[in-house]
Design a protein around this nucleic acid. Structure first.
Lengths: 264, 264
DNA sequence: CGCCTATTTGACCTTTCTCAATAGATGTGG
DNA sequence: CCACATCTATTGAGAAAGGTCAAATAGGCG
Protein backbone atom coordinates (compact mmCIF):
# COMPACT_ATOMS: atom_id res chain seq x y z
CA UNK A 1 0.00 0.00 0.00
CA UNK A 2 1.38 3.33 -1.08
CA UNK A 3 4.86 1.98 -0.43
CA UNK A 4 6.52 4.43 -2.72
CA UNK A 5 5.00 7.29 -0.87
CA UNK A 6 6.13 6.11 2.54
CA UNK A 7 9.58 5.44 1.30
CA UNK A 8 10.12 8.65 -0.55
CA UNK A 9 9.46 11.09 2.30
CA UNK A 10 11.79 9.22 4.58
CA UNK A 11 14.35 8.78 1.84
CA UNK A 12 14.28 12.50 1.11
CA UNK A 13 14.83 13.19 4.75
CA UNK A 14 17.74 10.79 5.00
CA UNK A 15 19.18 12.12 1.79
CA UNK A 16 19.03 15.66 3.13
CA UNK A 17 21.44 14.57 5.85
CA UNK A 18 23.64 11.91 4.32
CA UNK A 19 24.58 10.44 0.98
CA UNK A 20 22.50 7.43 -0.02
CA UNK A 21 23.88 4.69 -2.23
CA UNK A 22 21.71 3.13 -4.89
CA UNK A 23 21.54 0.02 -2.73
CA UNK A 24 20.22 2.19 0.07
CA UNK A 25 17.54 3.60 -2.18
CA UNK A 26 16.59 0.16 -3.31
CA UNK A 27 16.38 -1.11 0.23
CA UNK A 28 14.20 1.83 1.17
CA UNK A 29 11.98 1.28 -1.84
CA UNK A 30 11.22 -2.18 -0.51
CA UNK A 31 10.66 -1.08 3.04
CA UNK A 32 7.70 -2.93 4.54
CA UNK A 33 5.27 -0.49 6.06
CA UNK A 34 1.77 -0.09 7.38
CA UNK A 35 0.19 3.27 6.72
CA UNK A 36 -2.11 4.89 9.27
CA UNK A 37 -4.18 8.02 9.11
CA UNK A 38 -4.51 9.57 12.52
CA UNK A 39 -6.64 12.36 13.89
CA UNK A 40 -5.48 15.31 15.94
CA UNK A 41 -4.13 14.76 19.44
CA UNK A 42 -3.75 11.05 19.01
CA UNK A 43 -0.99 9.30 20.94
CA UNK A 44 1.20 7.20 18.69
CA UNK A 45 3.38 6.17 21.62
CA UNK A 46 2.93 6.50 25.33
CA UNK A 47 5.46 6.61 28.10
CA UNK A 48 6.24 3.06 29.10
CA UNK A 49 5.31 1.52 25.76
CA UNK A 50 7.57 -1.06 24.24
CA UNK A 51 7.49 -1.50 20.55
CA UNK A 52 9.15 -3.33 17.70
CA UNK A 53 8.22 -0.83 15.02
CA UNK A 54 9.37 2.63 14.11
CA UNK A 55 6.95 5.36 13.25
CA UNK A 56 7.81 7.36 10.14
CA UNK A 57 5.94 10.60 9.76
CA UNK A 58 4.59 11.10 6.24
CA UNK A 59 2.22 14.03 6.57
CA UNK A 60 1.46 16.43 9.38
CA UNK A 61 3.32 16.93 12.61
CA UNK A 62 4.20 14.83 15.62
CA UNK A 63 5.66 15.96 18.90
CA UNK A 64 7.26 14.36 21.90
CA UNK A 65 5.57 15.57 25.00
CA UNK A 66 6.53 14.94 28.62
CA UNK A 67 3.37 13.56 30.22
CA UNK A 68 4.62 14.18 33.75
CA UNK A 69 5.17 17.87 33.21
CA UNK A 70 2.21 19.93 34.42
CA UNK A 71 2.03 22.00 31.26
CA UNK A 72 2.82 19.09 28.94
CA UNK A 73 6.23 20.31 27.90
CA UNK A 74 6.94 19.51 24.28
CA UNK A 75 10.54 18.46 23.78
CA UNK A 76 10.60 18.23 20.01
CA UNK A 77 8.41 18.69 16.97
CA UNK A 78 8.74 16.41 13.97
CA UNK A 79 8.00 17.08 10.33
CA UNK A 80 7.30 14.70 7.44
CA UNK A 81 10.18 12.37 6.71
CA UNK A 82 11.24 12.23 10.37
CA UNK A 83 11.55 9.01 12.31
CA UNK A 84 10.84 10.25 15.82
CA UNK A 85 11.25 6.94 17.60
CA UNK A 86 14.15 5.58 15.60
CA UNK A 87 16.22 5.29 18.77
CA UNK A 88 13.82 2.62 20.00
CA UNK A 89 15.55 0.16 17.71
CA UNK A 90 18.30 0.00 20.29
CA UNK A 91 16.29 0.85 23.33
CA UNK A 92 12.71 -0.27 22.90
CA UNK A 93 11.41 1.49 25.97
CA UNK A 94 9.67 4.78 25.36
CA UNK A 95 9.76 7.45 28.01
CA UNK A 96 7.47 10.15 26.85
CA UNK A 97 4.37 10.53 24.71
CA UNK A 98 4.47 10.90 20.94
CA UNK A 99 1.40 12.88 19.97
CA UNK A 100 -0.08 14.04 16.67
CA UNK A 101 -0.53 17.77 16.20
CA UNK A 102 -3.43 17.89 13.80
CA UNK A 103 -4.32 15.08 11.40
CA UNK A 104 -1.31 13.07 10.26
CA UNK A 105 -0.29 10.14 8.13
CA UNK A 106 2.36 7.82 9.51
CA UNK A 107 3.99 4.60 8.40
CA UNK A 108 4.98 1.87 10.81
CA UNK A 109 8.08 -0.05 9.88
CA UNK A 110 9.41 -3.07 11.81
CA UNK A 111 12.68 -2.55 13.63
CA UNK A 112 13.81 -5.68 11.88
CA UNK A 113 13.83 -3.85 8.58
CA UNK A 114 16.27 -1.25 9.86
CA UNK A 115 18.47 -3.87 11.44
CA UNK A 116 18.61 -5.91 8.28
CA UNK A 117 19.13 -2.92 6.04
CA UNK A 118 21.97 -1.80 8.31
CA UNK A 119 23.55 -5.21 8.07
CA UNK A 120 23.36 -5.14 4.28
CA UNK A 121 24.56 -1.59 3.76
CA UNK A 122 27.18 0.19 5.83
CA UNK A 123 26.09 3.53 4.45
CA UNK A 124 22.54 2.82 5.54
CA UNK A 125 23.75 1.85 8.99
CA UNK A 126 25.71 5.04 9.14
CA UNK A 127 22.87 7.17 7.84
CA UNK A 128 20.48 5.87 10.47
CA UNK A 129 22.97 6.55 13.24
CA UNK A 130 23.65 9.96 11.85
CA UNK A 131 19.94 10.66 11.89
CA UNK A 132 19.88 10.03 15.60
CA UNK A 133 22.86 12.21 16.14
CA UNK A 134 21.15 15.00 14.21
CA UNK A 135 18.03 14.61 16.33
CA UNK A 136 20.22 14.89 19.42
CA UNK A 137 21.77 18.07 18.02
CA UNK A 138 18.29 19.48 17.48
CA UNK A 139 17.48 18.65 21.08
CA UNK A 140 20.57 20.51 22.26
CA UNK A 141 19.49 23.44 20.23
CA UNK A 142 16.04 23.26 21.78
CA UNK A 143 17.72 23.52 25.18
CA UNK A 144 19.56 26.62 24.02
CA UNK A 145 16.30 28.07 22.78
CA UNK A 146 14.54 27.58 26.10
CA UNK A 147 17.51 28.52 28.20
CA UNK A 148 18.76 31.65 26.56
CA UNK A 149 16.13 33.44 24.55
CA UNK A 150 13.09 35.48 25.51
CA UNK A 151 9.60 34.46 24.49
CA UNK A 152 9.55 36.41 21.26
CA UNK A 153 12.74 35.02 19.84
CA UNK A 154 11.94 31.54 21.14
CA UNK A 155 8.78 31.43 19.13
CA UNK A 156 10.53 32.94 16.13
CA UNK A 157 13.28 30.37 16.41
CA UNK A 158 10.87 27.49 16.58
CA UNK A 159 9.11 28.68 13.46
CA UNK A 160 12.42 29.09 11.64
CA UNK A 161 13.41 25.57 12.56
CA UNK A 162 10.15 24.02 11.47
CA UNK A 163 10.19 25.92 8.20
CA UNK A 164 13.77 24.96 7.41
CA UNK A 165 13.13 21.33 8.16
CA UNK A 166 10.04 21.30 6.02
CA UNK A 167 12.02 22.81 3.18
CA UNK A 168 14.67 20.14 3.51
CA UNK A 169 12.09 17.58 2.42
CA UNK A 170 10.57 19.78 -0.24
CA UNK A 171 7.69 21.33 1.68
CA UNK A 172 6.90 24.94 2.57
CA UNK A 173 8.84 26.12 -0.44
CA UNK A 174 6.87 29.32 -0.57
CA UNK A 175 7.16 29.95 3.17
CA UNK A 176 3.60 28.85 3.71
CA UNK A 177 3.14 26.04 6.14
CA UNK A 178 0.17 24.11 7.39
CA UNK A 179 -0.30 24.89 11.02
CA UNK A 180 -2.58 22.61 12.98
CA UNK A 181 -0.81 24.00 16.09
CA UNK A 182 -2.90 25.68 18.70
CA UNK A 183 -1.36 28.57 20.54
CA UNK A 184 -1.22 26.31 23.56
CA UNK A 185 0.87 23.83 21.60
CA UNK A 186 3.26 26.60 20.76
CA UNK A 187 3.30 27.63 24.40
CA UNK A 188 4.10 24.07 25.52
CA UNK A 189 6.91 23.90 23.02
CA UNK A 190 8.42 27.22 24.05
CA UNK A 191 7.93 26.91 27.78
CA UNK A 192 5.66 29.94 28.06
CA UNK A 193 2.03 30.38 29.07
CA UNK A 194 -0.69 30.18 26.43
CA UNK A 195 -1.68 33.76 27.09
CA UNK A 196 1.83 34.96 26.53
CA UNK A 197 2.10 32.83 23.40
CA UNK A 198 -0.89 34.69 22.07
CA UNK A 199 0.68 38.08 22.75
CA UNK A 200 3.92 36.92 21.24
CA UNK A 201 2.25 35.84 18.01
CA UNK A 202 0.44 39.13 17.85
CA UNK A 203 3.74 40.90 18.09
CA UNK A 204 5.20 38.80 15.29
CA UNK A 205 2.21 39.72 13.20
CA UNK A 206 2.41 43.38 14.10
CA UNK A 207 6.06 43.42 13.11
CA UNK A 208 5.11 42.15 9.67
CA UNK A 209 7.11 38.95 10.06
CA UNK A 210 4.26 36.53 9.48
CA UNK A 211 0.59 35.95 8.97
CA UNK A 212 -1.12 33.19 10.88
CA UNK A 213 -4.74 32.68 10.07
CA UNK A 214 -6.92 29.65 10.52
CA UNK A 215 -4.58 26.78 9.80
CA UNK A 216 -1.83 28.34 7.77
CA UNK A 217 1.29 30.26 8.69
CA UNK A 218 2.79 32.48 6.02
CA UNK A 219 6.19 33.88 6.81
CA UNK A 220 6.25 37.25 5.14
CA UNK A 221 9.73 38.34 6.20
CA UNK A 222 12.05 35.38 6.45
CA UNK A 223 15.23 37.26 7.05
CA UNK A 224 13.59 39.46 9.65
CA UNK A 225 12.29 36.40 11.46
CA UNK A 226 15.65 34.65 11.26
CA UNK A 227 17.41 37.76 12.57
CA UNK A 228 15.00 38.10 15.46
CA UNK A 229 15.44 34.41 16.25
CA UNK A 230 19.18 34.50 15.85
CA UNK A 231 18.63 31.45 13.69
CA UNK A 232 21.62 29.57 12.33
CA UNK A 233 20.57 26.34 10.61
CA UNK A 234 23.99 24.73 10.96
CA UNK A 235 22.82 22.43 13.73
CA UNK A 236 20.30 20.82 11.41
CA UNK A 237 23.23 19.41 9.46
CA UNK A 238 21.53 19.71 6.12
CA UNK A 239 23.65 19.08 3.11
CA UNK A 240 24.52 22.17 1.08
CA UNK A 241 21.79 22.38 -1.49
CA UNK A 242 19.02 21.99 1.02
CA UNK A 243 19.66 24.64 3.59
CA UNK A 244 20.19 27.49 1.21
CA UNK A 245 17.97 30.45 1.78
CA UNK A 246 14.32 29.87 0.92
CA UNK A 247 13.27 29.95 -2.67
CA UNK A 248 10.96 32.88 -2.23
CA UNK A 249 12.63 36.23 -1.65
CA UNK A 250 11.88 38.19 1.50
CA UNK A 251 9.93 40.85 -0.24
CA UNK A 252 7.24 39.80 -2.63
CA UNK A 253 7.17 42.74 -5.03
CA UNK A 254 3.93 44.62 -4.58
CA UNK A 255 2.05 43.01 -1.78
CA UNK A 256 4.62 42.15 0.80
CA UNK A 257 6.42 45.48 0.56
CA UNK A 258 3.30 47.47 1.16
CA UNK A 259 2.22 45.12 3.88
CA UNK A 260 5.62 45.47 5.49
CA UNK A 261 5.33 49.24 5.43
CA UNK A 262 1.84 49.09 6.84
CA UNK A 263 2.91 47.01 9.76
CA UNK A 264 6.05 48.72 11.02
CA UNK B 1 49.16 3.95 31.68
CA UNK B 2 46.50 3.50 34.31
CA UNK B 3 44.50 1.50 31.82
CA UNK B 4 42.53 -0.28 34.49
CA UNK B 5 41.46 3.02 35.94
CA UNK B 6 40.25 4.44 32.66
CA UNK B 7 38.44 1.28 31.84
CA UNK B 8 36.75 0.78 35.15
CA UNK B 9 34.94 4.12 35.43
CA UNK B 10 33.56 3.76 31.95
CA UNK B 11 32.74 0.12 32.50
CA UNK B 12 30.87 0.97 35.70
CA UNK B 13 28.93 3.56 33.80
CA UNK B 14 28.04 1.19 30.99
CA UNK B 15 27.19 -1.53 33.47
CA UNK B 16 24.84 0.82 35.29
CA UNK B 17 22.79 1.01 32.10
CA UNK B 18 23.16 -2.33 30.39
CA UNK B 19 24.34 -5.85 31.05
CA UNK B 20 27.97 -6.46 30.10
CA UNK B 21 29.21 -9.86 29.01
CA UNK B 22 32.57 -11.10 30.15
CA UNK B 23 33.83 -10.54 26.61
CA UNK B 24 32.69 -6.94 26.90
CA UNK B 25 34.59 -6.52 30.13
CA UNK B 26 37.65 -8.05 28.62
CA UNK B 27 37.45 -5.78 25.59
CA UNK B 28 37.10 -2.77 27.87
CA UNK B 29 40.02 -3.89 29.98
CA UNK B 30 42.16 -3.72 26.89
CA UNK B 31 40.84 -0.42 25.70
CA UNK B 32 43.68 1.72 24.38
CA UNK B 33 43.63 5.13 25.98
CA UNK B 34 45.62 8.27 26.57
CA UNK B 35 45.05 9.92 29.91
CA UNK B 36 45.05 13.70 30.27
CA UNK B 37 44.86 15.90 33.31
CA UNK B 38 43.16 19.15 32.47
CA UNK B 39 42.71 22.39 34.35
CA UNK B 40 39.49 24.26 34.92
CA UNK B 41 37.69 25.85 32.00
CA UNK B 42 39.69 23.98 29.40
CA UNK B 43 38.02 23.18 26.08
CA UNK B 44 38.29 19.49 25.23
CA UNK B 45 36.34 20.00 22.02
CA UNK B 46 35.34 23.10 20.16
CA UNK B 47 32.50 23.70 17.78
CA UNK B 48 33.65 22.71 14.33
CA UNK B 49 36.30 20.25 15.51
CA UNK B 50 36.57 16.90 13.83
CA UNK B 51 38.05 14.09 15.76
CA UNK B 52 38.72 10.39 15.65
CA UNK B 53 38.82 9.87 19.38
CA UNK B 54 36.23 9.76 22.10
CA UNK B 55 36.73 11.52 25.37
CA UNK B 56 35.88 9.47 28.46
CA UNK B 57 35.54 11.43 31.66
CA UNK B 58 37.35 9.83 34.56
CA UNK B 59 37.35 12.50 37.24
CA UNK B 60 35.67 15.85 37.54
CA UNK B 61 32.96 17.31 35.36
CA UNK B 62 32.56 18.26 31.73
CA UNK B 63 29.80 20.23 30.11
CA UNK B 64 28.58 20.91 26.62
CA UNK B 65 28.20 24.61 26.16
CA UNK B 66 26.71 26.46 23.20
CA UNK B 67 29.37 28.98 22.22
CA UNK B 68 26.98 31.05 20.13
CA UNK B 69 24.60 31.66 22.99
CA UNK B 70 25.26 35.02 24.68
CA UNK B 71 25.19 33.55 28.18
CA UNK B 72 27.00 30.35 27.19
CA UNK B 73 24.04 28.06 27.65
CA UNK B 74 25.10 24.69 29.05
CA UNK B 75 23.15 21.86 27.47
CA UNK B 76 24.42 18.98 29.56
CA UNK B 77 26.75 18.19 32.42
CA UNK B 78 28.75 14.98 32.48
CA UNK B 79 30.06 13.00 35.39
CA UNK B 80 32.86 10.43 35.63
CA UNK B 81 32.28 7.39 33.46
CA UNK B 82 30.42 9.39 30.81
CA UNK B 83 31.45 9.49 27.17
CA UNK B 84 30.16 12.92 26.19
CA UNK B 85 31.23 12.77 22.55
CA UNK B 86 30.45 9.15 21.88
CA UNK B 87 28.08 10.16 19.08
CA UNK B 88 31.06 11.49 17.14
CA UNK B 89 31.88 7.93 16.18
CA UNK B 90 29.10 8.17 13.63
CA UNK B 91 29.16 11.87 13.05
CA UNK B 92 32.65 13.23 13.61
CA UNK B 93 31.67 16.86 13.45
CA UNK B 94 31.25 18.60 16.78
CA UNK B 95 28.81 21.45 17.09
CA UNK B 96 29.33 22.90 20.47
CA UNK B 97 32.10 23.26 23.03
CA UNK B 98 32.98 20.58 25.54
CA UNK B 99 34.45 22.36 28.56
CA UNK B 100 35.92 21.22 31.86
CA UNK B 101 34.25 22.48 35.01
CA UNK B 102 37.12 22.45 37.45
CA UNK B 103 40.15 20.18 37.12
CA UNK B 104 39.41 16.89 35.41
CA UNK B 105 41.00 13.70 34.24
CA UNK B 106 39.93 12.33 30.88
CA UNK B 107 40.91 9.40 28.68
CA UNK B 108 41.00 9.63 24.91
CA UNK B 109 40.07 6.44 23.10
CA UNK B 110 40.21 6.00 19.32
CA UNK B 111 36.87 5.63 17.56
CA UNK B 112 38.39 2.58 15.98
CA UNK B 113 38.35 0.79 19.33
CA UNK B 114 34.59 1.25 19.70
CA UNK B 115 33.97 0.18 16.13
CA UNK B 116 36.03 -2.94 16.51
CA UNK B 117 34.60 -3.79 19.90
CA UNK B 118 31.10 -3.37 18.45
CA UNK B 119 31.96 -5.71 15.61
CA UNK B 120 33.25 -8.33 18.03
CA UNK B 121 30.46 -8.14 20.55
CA UNK B 122 26.80 -7.48 19.80
CA UNK B 123 26.10 -6.67 23.41
CA UNK B 124 28.88 -4.08 23.33
CA UNK B 125 27.43 -2.60 20.16
CA UNK B 126 24.07 -2.47 21.79
CA UNK B 127 25.38 -1.01 25.02
CA UNK B 128 27.11 1.83 23.22
CA UNK B 129 23.97 2.66 21.27
CA UNK B 130 21.93 2.47 24.39
CA UNK B 131 24.31 4.89 26.03
CA UNK B 132 23.56 7.43 23.34
CA UNK B 133 19.87 6.88 23.67
CA UNK B 134 20.15 7.45 27.42
CA UNK B 135 22.05 10.68 26.82
CA UNK B 136 19.29 11.78 24.48
CA UNK B 137 16.71 10.99 27.15
CA UNK B 138 18.69 13.12 29.60
CA UNK B 139 18.65 15.92 27.07
CA UNK B 140 14.88 15.67 26.74
CA UNK B 141 14.63 15.86 30.45
CA UNK B 142 16.85 18.94 30.46
CA UNK B 143 14.39 20.55 28.07
CA UNK B 144 11.56 19.73 30.45
CA UNK B 145 13.56 21.23 33.28
CA UNK B 146 14.13 24.51 31.47
CA UNK B 147 10.68 24.66 29.96
CA UNK B 148 8.45 23.85 32.84
CA UNK B 149 10.03 24.54 36.19
CA UNK B 150 10.81 27.73 38.05
CA UNK B 151 14.34 28.67 39.02
CA UNK B 152 14.27 27.04 42.41
CA UNK B 153 13.12 23.64 41.26
CA UNK B 154 15.33 23.81 38.18
CA UNK B 155 18.41 24.14 40.31
CA UNK B 156 17.15 21.48 42.68
CA UNK B 157 16.49 19.15 39.77
CA UNK B 158 19.92 19.64 38.31
CA UNK B 159 21.53 18.81 41.65
CA UNK B 160 19.36 15.71 42.00
CA UNK B 161 20.37 14.54 38.56
CA UNK B 162 24.07 15.07 39.11
CA UNK B 163 23.95 13.34 42.46
CA UNK B 164 22.05 10.36 41.14
CA UNK B 165 24.39 9.94 38.21
CA UNK B 166 27.42 10.16 40.47
CA UNK B 167 25.94 7.48 42.67
CA UNK B 168 25.39 5.25 39.68
CA UNK B 169 29.16 5.01 39.28
CA UNK B 170 29.86 4.73 42.97
CA UNK B 171 30.53 8.37 43.83
CA UNK B 172 28.75 10.78 46.17
CA UNK B 173 27.53 7.86 48.26
CA UNK B 174 27.22 10.07 51.29
CA UNK B 175 25.46 12.87 49.41
CA UNK B 176 28.60 14.94 49.39
CA UNK B 177 29.83 15.96 45.99
CA UNK B 178 32.79 17.91 44.75
CA UNK B 179 31.56 21.12 43.27
CA UNK B 180 33.97 23.05 41.11
CA UNK B 181 30.89 24.80 39.71
CA UNK B 182 30.67 28.52 40.01
CA UNK B 183 27.26 30.03 40.53
CA UNK B 184 27.53 31.34 37.00
CA UNK B 185 28.00 27.80 35.71
CA UNK B 186 24.85 26.81 37.51
CA UNK B 187 23.09 29.81 36.03
CA UNK B 188 24.20 28.88 32.52
CA UNK B 189 22.96 25.36 33.03
CA UNK B 190 19.58 26.44 34.35
CA UNK B 191 18.97 29.35 32.02
CA UNK B 192 18.84 31.95 34.77
CA UNK B 193 20.99 34.96 35.61
CA UNK B 194 23.98 34.54 37.93
CA UNK B 195 22.44 36.89 40.46
CA UNK B 196 19.29 34.87 40.56
CA UNK B 197 21.28 31.66 40.82
CA UNK B 198 22.87 33.08 43.93
CA UNK B 199 19.51 33.90 45.50
CA UNK B 200 18.21 30.48 44.56
CA UNK B 201 21.09 28.70 46.25
CA UNK B 202 20.61 30.80 49.31
CA UNK B 203 17.03 29.70 49.43
CA UNK B 204 18.02 26.05 49.14
CA UNK B 205 20.39 26.60 52.03
CA UNK B 206 17.83 28.46 54.10
CA UNK B 207 15.39 25.61 53.57
CA UNK B 208 17.93 23.21 55.03
CA UNK B 209 18.15 21.16 51.84
CA UNK B 210 21.86 21.52 51.28
CA UNK B 211 25.12 23.08 52.30
CA UNK B 212 27.43 24.47 49.67
CA UNK B 213 30.71 25.77 50.94
CA UNK B 214 33.95 26.27 49.11
CA UNK B 215 34.08 23.36 46.71
CA UNK B 216 31.73 20.86 48.23
CA UNK B 217 27.98 20.41 48.10
CA UNK B 218 26.40 18.40 50.87
CA UNK B 219 22.79 17.50 50.38
CA UNK B 220 21.31 17.47 53.84
CA UNK B 221 17.73 16.61 52.91
CA UNK B 222 17.62 14.40 49.86
CA UNK B 223 13.95 13.66 49.90
CA UNK B 224 13.11 17.29 50.41
CA UNK B 225 15.29 18.27 47.50
CA UNK B 226 13.84 15.56 45.29
CA UNK B 227 10.32 16.59 46.21
CA UNK B 228 11.02 20.23 45.48
CA UNK B 229 12.59 19.24 42.15
CA UNK B 230 9.83 16.81 41.31
CA UNK B 231 12.69 14.46 40.56
CA UNK B 232 11.94 11.05 39.06
CA UNK B 233 15.14 9.24 38.06
CA UNK B 234 13.39 6.93 35.61
CA UNK B 235 14.75 8.80 32.62
CA UNK B 236 18.30 7.99 33.64
CA UNK B 237 17.51 4.36 32.89
CA UNK B 238 19.67 3.02 35.68
CA UNK B 239 19.38 -0.64 36.39
CA UNK B 240 17.56 -1.48 39.61
CA UNK B 241 20.29 -1.69 42.20
CA UNK B 242 21.84 1.60 41.24
CA UNK B 243 19.05 4.08 41.46
CA UNK B 244 17.77 3.07 44.83
CA UNK B 245 17.57 5.82 47.36
CA UNK B 246 20.92 7.10 48.60
CA UNK B 247 22.78 5.15 51.21
CA UNK B 248 22.88 7.91 53.76
CA UNK B 249 19.67 8.97 55.48
CA UNK B 250 18.43 12.52 55.18
CA UNK B 251 19.53 13.65 58.60
CA UNK B 252 22.92 12.71 59.97
CA UNK B 253 22.47 12.64 63.72
CA UNK B 254 24.74 15.11 65.51
CA UNK B 255 26.90 16.98 63.09
CA UNK B 256 24.57 17.69 60.26
CA UNK B 257 21.93 19.13 62.52
CA UNK B 258 24.27 21.55 64.20
CA UNK B 259 25.96 22.52 60.95
CA UNK B 260 22.57 23.04 59.43
CA UNK B 261 21.67 25.34 62.29
CA UNK B 262 24.94 27.23 61.95
CA UNK B 263 24.32 28.02 58.34
CA UNK B 264 20.75 29.20 58.39
C1' DC C 1 49.63 42.02 51.48
C1' DG C 2 47.33 42.95 47.21
C1' DC C 3 45.03 41.33 43.20
C1' DC C 4 41.61 38.81 40.99
C1' DT C 5 37.66 36.28 40.89
C1' DA C 6 33.40 34.71 42.96
C1' DT C 7 29.69 35.72 45.99
C1' DT C 8 26.39 38.59 48.12
C1' DT C 9 23.22 42.50 48.65
C1' DG C 10 19.92 46.27 47.47
C1' DA C 11 17.13 48.91 44.41
C1' DC C 12 14.67 49.13 40.50
C1' DC C 13 12.89 47.53 36.12
C1' DT C 14 11.05 44.13 32.59
C1' DT C 15 9.14 40.04 31.34
C1' DT C 16 6.07 36.76 32.00
C1' DC C 17 2.26 34.62 34.67
C1' DT C 18 -2.38 34.27 36.52
C1' DC C 19 -7.08 35.07 36.70
C1' DA C 20 -11.12 36.34 34.71
C1' DA C 21 -13.92 37.86 31.21
C1' DT C 22 -15.12 38.31 26.23
C1' DA C 23 -15.20 37.10 21.53
C1' DG C 24 -14.68 34.05 17.75
C1' DA C 25 -14.64 29.44 15.53
C1' DT C 26 -15.87 24.94 14.96
C1' DG C 27 -18.74 21.20 15.38
C1' DT C 28 -23.17 18.65 16.54
C1' DG C 29 -27.80 17.41 16.84
C1' DG C 30 -32.35 18.71 15.94
C1' DC D 1 -30.09 26.03 8.76
C1' DC D 2 -30.24 27.23 13.59
C1' DA D 3 -29.12 26.78 18.58
C1' DC D 4 -26.03 25.11 21.69
C1' DA D 5 -21.78 23.26 23.52
C1' DT D 6 -16.99 23.35 23.19
C1' DC D 7 -12.70 24.71 22.11
C1' DT D 8 -9.54 28.43 20.82
C1' DA D 9 -8.12 33.12 20.62
C1' DT D 10 -8.05 37.69 22.58
C1' DT D 11 -8.03 41.37 26.10
C1' DG D 12 -7.27 43.74 30.56
C1' DA D 13 -5.52 44.24 35.10
C1' DG D 14 -2.74 43.07 38.84
C1' DA D 15 0.93 40.05 40.77
C1' DA D 16 5.09 37.37 40.74
C1' DA D 17 9.35 35.84 39.00
C1' DG D 18 13.40 36.95 37.29
C1' DG D 19 16.71 40.38 35.09
C1' DT D 20 19.98 44.35 35.36
C1' DC D 21 23.08 47.48 37.41
C1' DA D 22 26.11 48.78 40.75
C1' DA D 23 28.36 48.39 44.87
C1' DA D 24 30.11 45.80 48.79
C1' DT D 25 32.15 41.65 50.68
C1' DA D 26 34.62 37.49 50.91
C1' DG D 27 37.96 34.00 49.40
C1' DG D 28 41.85 32.17 47.14
C1' DC D 29 46.39 32.63 45.68
C1' DG D 30 50.90 34.42 44.19
Amino acid sequence: MQAGFAFSRFADHLASLTRLSSLDRELLANMPSTISHLGARHAVRRKGDRTDQCCLLLQGYLCWQAPESPDGQITSIHVPGDAPDLFAIHDPQIDSDLITLGPTVVAFVPHRFFREASALSPSMANGLLRLQSVYAAALRNWVVNLGSRDALSRVAHLLCEITTRLQAVGLARDLRLASPFTQSDLASACGISPVHANRTIQELRRSGLLQWQSKTIFITDWSGLARLADFDPGYLRLRKQEHEQPLVPDAIPGRSASLGALLT
